[in-house]
Nucleic acid binder design. Structure first.
Length: 481
RNA sequence: GGUCCCAUCGACUAAGGGUUAGGUCGUCACUCUUUCACAGUGAAAAUACGGGUUCGAAUCCCGUUGGGAUCACCA
């Protein structure tokens, strides 16, 4: 490496949306880069033409951007090490693959997929390790030429050195050793001329001067292949850190079926970006600074982050805690910004938002109930209804009682004359009413609440009254008189 | 099955030889409140097991058990 600048990359394959696990990987890369004043790079690993999905790159980039993980080099952004799509780097891979061939570190193989399936099936029956049997490894140059000349389709495989041990230091897990004899002679260049992950990844990480590879634990077992490649090229191996997996509640690798896995689904439900980042940062990492704080801004996370403090055990993605954290953010968010975020959800629930001041008051009254923004519809019906319906018999009884009539009769003229501008005025009105009618506490408030909202619970009552306004309150009360 | 990785309350984790094993979510109770929620207080709840090493082990070593990952011309 020519200089000591930290360069890390997030390298998703564009097969759909940004996965929660992918976001975690991206976030840790980002935090590590920013903590070290380094660069966060996005590289698209689109070497599998069959799995490619249109719009996937745009989707991923958009999600990262919304979440504030700024990409410094990559698609739509550029940089000195492009192109950042592997599908646009085919000639590079070809060139290095030829170099491997020349060095005798790779070889041509000519089996069809069917033949390989057959081979594996047999190995399974015999209870042996399923791996390429290296049958093409020792073809003579003449044999190879002959097959090539006759146009037989081929792949290029890595010639794994036998009877060696690959040892590497993982920044999170420490020393890991793997025998090369169990390492497959991995296909490097596929029949369609595209590289496999392993080849492209190693070449790009080197060429893009990546200093630290931070990725999911599912990759540890293929590290030996990569190290063999680095050595074959005579390149320095970047530092590696394999992150513990994100798990389903049943401890298997986080997947669909057991809940949402696309980051955009979480965003759509109304998980705030800040909460998502905060929550995911704490999955498999802890600042360990002695503080017991759990709410962190992105800036704070950058300041505190270090790979040494990443755990080695997998972490269950616990939606309950995410909900709690999201609620923490919702409760403490700037009201204007929160209202902006909430307006689409209010509209979606079928309610009017043209009166911004009123909307803000409503948001302020109910934010405390929300685990996520899309729940707001369940809490605001009372502010918009033109007629109050009371379903349960118990409620009806309460609202039709003699005490209730007494309260309503007292309140209706009093409210018409009251000033609703100040909450305190409303409160005073109620305490005076309790004195004058002799009906107090729960007996006073419950029928009132039912008459006005149709429910027995909800936000602070004077606040509801204020938001509703005199006319509606009087109207609702009159109906029960 | 082979290989690799991992192992503290139900979940996320702290404690990197000496603590009544701490915090957060969740759960339960109490307080506050007209109600629900919030907030506050408190409770139940863990070092997988067995051997070592040591005066002393959640912490170091070994084994067992359990879990996970991986074994493609997918990444």
């Amino acid at each position: 490496m020519s200089n000591s600048e930290v360069r890390v990359r997030f390298a998703p394959s564009p097969t759909g949306y940004l996965h929660v696990g992918g976001l975690r990987t991206a976030l840790f890369n980002y935090l590590f880069a920013k903590h070290n004043n380094g660069k966060f790079i996005l590289r698209v690993e689109d070497t599998d033409q069959t799995r490619k999905v249109d719009g996937a790159v745009e989707n991923i980039v958009e999600a990262l951007q919304k979440l504030g993980l700024d990409i410094e080099e990559g698609p739509f952004k550029g940089g000195d090490f492009g192109p950042y799509y592997q599908s646009q780097r085919l000639d590079i891979y070809k060139k290095y693959c030829d170099e491997l061939l020349e060095k005798g570190m790779a070889y041509y193989a000519f089996e069809t997929s069917e033949e390989l399936d057959e081979m594996r099936k047999l190995q399974q029956i015999e209870g042996r390790q399923t791996m390429y049997d290296r049958r093409a490894r020792d073809f003579t140059p003449d044999e190879v030429r002959e097959k090539l000349d006759s146009g037989i389709p081929y792949v290029i495989r890595l010639k794994v050195p036998l009877n060696e041990e690959v040892i590497f230091e993982d920044l999170i897990r420490g020393t890991i050793k793997i025998e090369t004899n169990i390492v497959d002679d991995q296909v490097l260049l596929k029949g369609d001329g595209f590289p496999t992950y392993h080849l492209a990844n190693v070449i790009d990480d080197h060429l893009m001067e990546i200093t630290h590879i931070i990725r999911g634990e599912e990759w540890v077992t293929s590290v030996p292949k990569h190290i063999i490649l680095y050595r074959a090229f005579g390149w320095e191996v970047p530092k590696m850190a394999h992150l513990p997996l994100l798990l389903n509640p049943d401890k298997t690798k986080l997947s669909k079926r057991q809940g949402d896995v696309a980051v955009e689904d979480y965003m759509a439900k109304g998980y705030l970006n800040e909460a998502l980042i905060n929550f995911i940062a704490l999955l498999g990492w802890h600042p360990g600074d002695g503080s017991e704080e759990e709410i962190f801004t992105k800036e704070k996370l950058i300041e505190l982050f270090s790979l040494e403090r990443v755990h080695n055990a997998g972490a269950v993605f616990n939606i309950d805690k995410l909900n709690w954290m999201n609620n923490e953010y919702i409760k403490n968010y700037d009201l204007d910004r929160l209202t902006d975020l909430l307006i689409p959800y209010i509209k979606e629930a079928g309610y009017e938002t043209s009166d911004l001041e009123k909307t803000k008051k409503i948001v302020s009254a109910v934010r405390v109930y929300l685990n996520k923004l899309n729940e707001i519809g369940e809490h605001i019906k009372m502010f918009y209804q033109e007629k109050v319906t009371v379903d349960s018999d118990e409620f009806k009884e309460s609202v039709k009682s003699d005490d209730a009539k007494k309260i309503f009769n007292y309140l209706i003229p009093a409210i018409e004359q009251a000033d609703f501008g100040e909450i305190d005025n409303i409160k005073n009105l109620f305490s005076q009413a309790q004195k004058d009618t002799g009906v107090k506490g729960k007996k006073f408030f419950q029928p009132l609440r039912i008459a006005i909202t149709g429910q027995t619970h909800g936000p602070e009552f004077p606040l509801i009254i204020q938001i509703l306004g005199k006319d509606k309150v009087v109207k609702f009360l009159s109906e029960w008189r």
